[in-house]
Nucleic acid binder design. Structure first.
Lengths: 335, 335
DNA sequence: TTGAAAGCGCTAACAT
DNA sequence: ATGTTAGCGCTTTCAA
């Protein structure tokens, strides 16, 4: 900036004013300064600019589990859109489900003086964020609630979605309903199983008769679990899958054995309507998760005193899949 | 930091050393400083730290078209992984296919002093990056080559992939082959059509007999285009689709009319193996695009004199889809 | 409307 | 091993 000032024959401060579009600079000088900037290839240093003024960095951070997963990348895209409206950049980082890395990333982003933080918590203790929150950094938790401290949170109505899906199976007459899930030590999966269990109990069915915790969301492993379930003495006539990857594993297995077992699952997804197996899935507005989280960050940035907010995104049931001519919707065994 | 120094009864510089893990500080002082840091809730300011030292910002930027698109989010995830290995954060921003926004984002990121930039160019002129490159910022273009200046580039072998796919259809005896594409003013689509055209010409077939530029990648619109193609006087016996969204649109239409037209398309995708229509798709390593781009950024960061690098990621053919019992692989009309 | 001086929070260079 | 001083590139006083 000093060089530009010298080249333009003005003071450093005038250059600063021009760089910040301060209106009280004479057009002639503005012109001269612009020319000098161009010639020298001047580029203002953002960090230095923010240093003295203590202004915000115009950056918010997002820590998700895995950017390659469409669920999380959709959240990121929606959050980025809100950020853009606030003239803010979004830094997205993946924790890879590693609590230590989640913490590292969060603290690194705070050191970069982000104006806010959105986190999908993976560890079982977010209390390390206490100092940051006290310092005034807005922190919002999305998809899973925090542990060890309280904070603004945006969740899916996992429990109710699972209840609805299972109720649908019950309404259709099914009583022997399998429940296949990923590891239950994650909040979302635990909630979904809780919802399914509640509904089964309410209907007088045994919620544990056909329950498998696959412990991974690998479709092949889930498919194998489904195979085992169907080969057992009293196989279920319908299966509820805890997420879409388990659901596709189940579909593969059911197609393989040309089974007509009724299928339901959590998560809607692209191409679900094209899969050759009819099913009922629990849909929800994934973008809303990212949008609401980002909006909360900016709201709290403006008013740090407001009460804690908890959003719960609603779910709905959708019929998906096409019938490839298998004996679907077979009569459930009543009783 | 001054406060910490006072609280610990040491000089500012000692605090700085402790913050940077400089080994030549006596354990007793380290302990005292750490305690003071904790009590005051001290947090070092990253920007200020980098300011004087002129060190890198440990950040690289990635500008893609749309984070919600799995293709781009996969690139982002792979790039982020490489960045992490270099103790660097990745800022991902979506241009939304808007050239003006691409430029804005790129310059904003440069102002933030990113250590490198990866761009999926959407505009037809990237010469605005000249000053940045001259200043020493490594810039890598991915998925599409830059226009208006030269630079390190990572591309998919679009042309060859399309050739292979069409050749497969030709080998199977098809001569009347439809080509359905998105807008041809994007590099990738133009290359794919060029490849298809080359192969059709080489086989003595008319490359323009059944060609439709849908001009969007909306599946429904693509499906309608396919419908029109099949309702024409001399319908093709096989169709090559320029990308996976057009391909799924075609599948929906073909399923609807229980047509057995042979299908091939560019892009492999999740669940393709489960779709109820047999097809041949052009696969490639999407993660490699992100990985190679990021690696190029860091390589050029270390050695700005190396010659321009152009990587071309290979493609391969895969059979996807399941047969729902339609009259597929019907005998093509020979001649 | 323009400019000079001080200082943001930290690190580099040079003492001690 | 520790402290002192200058200064990164900019913005904010405050003065002209």
């Amino acid at each position: 900036m000093v060089d530009v000032a010298r080249a333009a024959g003005v003071s450093l401060k005038t250059v600063s004013r021009v760089a910040n579009n301060v209106p009280t600079v004479s057009p002639a000088l503005v012109e001269r300064v612009h020319r000098a900037m161009h010639e020298l290839g001047f580029q203002r240093n953002n960090a230095a600019a923010h240093l003295r003024s203590g202004r915000a960095s115009a950056t918010i951070g997002l820590i998700i589990l895995d950017l390659a997963n469409p669920f999380y990348s959709t959240i990121a895209a929606a959050a980025a859109e809100v950020a853009q409206r606030h003239h803010t950049q979004l830094i997205t980082a993946s924790s890879g489900r590693d609590p230590a890395r989640e913490r590292e990333l969060a603290l690194d982003l705070c050191e970069r003086r982000v104006d806010g933080l959105i986190i999908v918590p993976t560890g079982d203790d977010q209390s390390y964020l206490r100092p940051e929150i006290d310092r005034g950094t807005p922190v919002v938790f999305v998809d899973r609630p925090p542990t060890g401290l309280d904070g603004d949170t945006v969740l899916i109505d996992n429990r109710d979605g699972a209840r609805e899906a299972v109720r649908q199976l019950l309404v259709e007459g099914h009583r022997d309903i399998g429940v296949v899930t990923d590891a239950l030590n994650t909040y979302t999966m635990a909630e979904r199983v809780a919802g399914a269990t509640e509904e089964l109990l309410a209907a007088g069915a045994d919620p544990d008769a056909h329950r498998i915790e696959v412990g991974t969301d690998d479709p092949a492993t889930a498919g194998a679990a489904v195979a085992g379930m169907l080969d057992a003495p009293d196989p279920p006539s319908a299966i509820f899958c805890g997420n879409n990857r388990i659901l596709t594993g189940a579909i593969e297995e059911l197609l393989r054995r040309r089974s007509g077992v009724r299928l339901a699952g959590f998560d809607d997804f692209e191409f679900a309507h094209l899969l050759p197996y009819p099913m009922t899935v629990v849909g929800y507005d994934t973008r809303a998760l990212g949008r609401l989280s980002a909006e909360l960050v900016f709201q709290r940035g403006h008013d740090s005193t407001r009460a804690l907010t908890k959003y719960v995104v609603a779910t709905y049931l959708v019929r998906r899949g096409v019938d490839p001519g298998l004996p679907h919707e077979r009569e459930p065994r009543v009783g």
